[in-house]
Nucleic acid binder design. Structure first.
Length: 498
RNA sequence: GGCGUCGUGGCCAAGUGGCUAAGGCAGCGGAUUGCAAAUCCGCCAUCGUGGGUUCGACUCCCACCGACGCCUCCA
């Protein structure tokens, strides 16, 4: 199967060819663990997951690695992110958002990182993010790789790509790496002309070039710090990905690197400079694939706009007023093309809930009909072939979903075969459990006791032909989030997924 | 200013140099129902504007108009 991806490095669609036959080495930039991950983060992460699952459907063995950034080296406004997180955690403990006892000492950055790492894994697993199920093997934490970062910085200095400036800070010298700017288009001359005013002069005077970026900063006062040949301090942001990608994937050049589009510059540009500067290779990743941003009801998502949602906000019903099943959020986040800005809306969520429900219902129907028996099927089957061919065209999810919808409405008299096809499609969509995988499952919606009581009452009312009472109960059930079906003799109710 | 993506029905969104321009949602008509819901059947676009290339373009080229993203911590 011919697979195409849009490569940000060359700004065009390219046929995908893995370095090693049948194996794909893939790295995705992961979350910072100072706060709960929001739906924009997950849009980008799940795009990586879709890509990985598709490659697996296409027959590749995919080694996917995603880092956890737990080094407190970023700033939020003026404050260190870890310090900001400490403040936030203290507030959240008061409000109950962070349960009592979850973080014993909010001043300990490791405890904060641990707490939010667990929260991330919890959300990610619910959303069927495969790499999260492989934690910790495939999800290294930056603080466990400080030694590797120091090694890489030393090597960069040896090779003439980095230098220690007069204030003791280690910088990468972008002038030592002619390809700097190839990914983002921000070549050195453009950066220089555009730099005026934006960067503080005192910082700049220490650097050889305005675009030189930090590799190690000695700083005794920093909240998280480690010993190094350049003094006690902390590593730059970019170096962790270069190190963990190489260590975990075991080679200097990898196949695919993904992330949000905002990471193209400076983060990914700098990763390339570091990794290639260190290895001497012409490429770090052969394919750089970036996801566009997520908007909420047409607006950019931001805390000040009040339209900023974490994954758990959505699960808990902060967006729609009703709880949303994780499978619905997953489907909503993967159903639009990764290179389009996706618009996250309530209506979209409802649509997604309908589709997910339809798929789950079809599955139960097929299981009942086939007695759980499943046929053998592969991509040579016309339906799956069409489904996979769409995805092979730069992850054309809309095309693939069209195939799926048409198939849903088609003839399913061979239930065992249909079940097999269903499973294959679901191995990519992951909106319901697949054998051997517990993640991201829509487990159907069983009624609770109260709902069941109302249902029985309704049946009784109907036997007595008391339609007014029956209708009243139906309205109540619907208000309680149930889907009510009145059959000839039976009444069935089911919790809606959103 | 630099780099990049894009403009298809009410909304979301595929696709092709030439048979009937996917699919979803919404809507409309019908079947079904005590009434609904769900389901099933049917209906519902000529592709931003103006040129050009071509036997023929929505699809190729040019111009224009418009939308959006990145260039600063951000997925």
């Amino acid at each position: 199967m011919k697979i195409n991806f849009y490569n940000s490095l060359t700004n065009q669609q390219e046929e995908f060819k893995s370095i090693q036959d049948g194996v794909v080495k893939m790295y995705s930039c992961g979350p910072t663990v100072y706060d709960f991950a929001h739906i924009g983060n997950f849009r980008s992460f799940l795009f990586g997951d879709l890509m990985r699952r598709f490659l697996e459907l296409a027959g590749y063995e995919v080694q996917h690695v995603m880092n956890i950034t737990d080094v407190g080296h970023m700033v939020e406004g003026e404050a260190d992110k870890m310090l900001a997180a400490a403040t936030r955690v203290k507030e959240n403990k008061k409000s109950g958002r962070v349960p009592e006892g979850a973080i014993k000492d909010p001043n300990d950055p490791y405890q904060i990182a641990d707490y939010y790492t667990k929260a991330f894994l919890d959300d990610a697993n619910k959303l069927g993010y495969k790499v999260a199920a492989e934690y910790p093997d495939s999800m290294p934490r930056a603080t466990d790789y400080i030694d590797g970062m120091i090694e890489m910085i030393e090597r960069l200095i040896q090779r003439g790509h980095a230098y220690v400036s007069s204030d003791g800070v280690v910088y990468y010298s972008v002038e030592s790496f002619p390809d700097y700017g190839n990914l983002s288009g921000n070549t050195m001359d453009k950066l220089q002309s555009g730099a005026g005013g934006r960067v503080s002069d005192q910082n700049q005077s220490m650097k050889k070039h305005p675009a030189d970026f930090l590799l190690w900063k000695p700083d005794q006062k920093h909240i998280m710090k480690w010993d190094s040949p350049w003094g006690v301090g902390y590593p730059g942001w970019h170096i962790e990905c270069s190190v963990m990608a190489a260590k975990k994937l075991g080679q200097d050049v990898i196949d695919i690197h993904t992330g949000g589009e905002d990471l193209i510059f400076p983060h990914h540009e700098c990763e390339i400079a570091q990794s290639c500067g260190c290895s001497g290779e012409s490429h770090f990743a052969n394919y750089w694939v970036h996801a566009r941003f997520l908007f909420v009801e047409g607006e950019k998502m931001s805390k000040s706009q009040g339209n900023f949602y974490t994954a758990r906000d959505v699960f808990e019903g902060k967006v729609t007023g009703k709880p949303v099943h994780p499978a619905v959020l997953r489907f909503e986040l993967i159903k639009s093309h990764y290179r389009s800005n996706m618009n996250f809306t309530k209506k979209g969520l409802t649509d997604s809930a309908n589709t997910v429900t339809k798929l789950i219902d079809l599955r139960s129907e097929l299981e009942a009909k086939s007695g759980g028996k499943m046929a053998e099927v592969d991509l040579s089957h016309p339906v799956l072939n069409e489904f996979a061919t769409a995805l092979a065209d730069d992850l054309n999810i809309a095309g693939a979903l069209a195939v799926m919808h048409t198939w849903i409405k088609s003839d399913h008299s061979d239930a065992a075969m249909s079940l097999a096809i269903w499973d294959k499609m679901n191995s990519v969509l992951a909106i319901a459990p697949i054998s051997g995988e517990g993640a991201g499952a829509a487990d159907g919606g069983d009624a609770d006791d109260q709902g069941e009581a109302m249902r029985l009452e309704m049946v009784a009312a109907r036997e007595a032909k008391d339609y007014a009472k029956s209708d009243e109960l139906r309205d109540k059930l619907i208000a309680a989030g149930y889907d009510v079906q009145i059959g000839k003799t039976e009444v069935t109710i089911k919790k809606k997924l959103a």
